[in-house]
């Protein structure tokens, strides 16, 4: 079972309900572009962060999710550092990632799956098992070439004694209770 908060909601919840928190976060944006001018990934983005926030205000979430921009946020927090409105654009980007994950948007599988397998590992072990994450991620991406991109690194890591083979899953995850409780609390709210 993967993380409930991301997977139980799924399609049943309206996009509007999902996006409410992002709207709340970025409503007060003044479109000054401070965030965008500082973004190290701006060059790779197909839409400026400022435009994303404009779309948030105008309720054009479809447009946001057709864009890859939010997945390109590397959480460097340059934007949050200087937002004159005191907003947290990096956090809002994370929130958009959450939505994409929760709604399992196919166009954002690459990012959301990675997070999902990461958390799956955390849930099971309490701590992250890097190899376990990668294995799960690569398997789910169903891209036979993808693992090769990381093959040399994986080999290097293993040879340096930095990766151990994942332990077999045994019954209850260490943080099952916490994940479940989070889901429960989120549900209530």
């Amino acid at each position: 079972m993967l993380h409930s908060a991301t997977e139980r909601k799924g399609e049943g919840v309206s996009l509007e309900a999902h996006t409410a928190s992002v709207r709340q976060m970025m409503r007060a944006c003044i479109q000054c572009g401070t965030c965008s001018a500082s973004c190290p990934n701006a060059g790779a983005m197909d839409m400026t962060p400022r435009r994303i926030w404009r779309c948030v205000q105008m309720d054009s979430f479809e447009e946001i999710f057709t864009s890859q921009t939010f997945t390109l946020c590397s959480s460097c927090y340059y934007c949050s550092l200087r937002c004159p409105r005191g907003l947290q654009p990096a956090d809002a980007m994370a929130a958009l990632k959450c939505i994409a994950a929760a709604r399992q948007m196919p166009q954002h599988r690459s990012s959301t799956l990675f997070y999902r397998y990461f958390l799956r590992s955390v849930r099971r072990n309490g701590r992250v098992h890097e190899m376990e994450v990668m294995t799960g991620y690569f398997a789910h991406m169903k891209n036979p070439l993808l693992p090769l991109r990381y093959a040399s690194l994986g080999w290097k890591l293993t040879s340096k004694g930095k990766i151990s083979l994942p332990r077999p899953a045994r019954g209850k995850g260490k943080l099952d209770a916490l994940f479940a409780k989070v889901a429960q609390v989120e549900e209530e709210n």
């Binding site: 959450c98 929760a102 958390l119 955390v122």
Partner: peptide, 16 residues
């Protein structure tokens, strides 16, 4: 101690 949540958790749920 357990995982701090890394970047992944904030990409999934703030409360988590």
């Amino acid at each position: 101690w357990t995982c701090c949540g890394a970047t992944a958790a904030s990409g999934v749920s703030r409360l988590l």
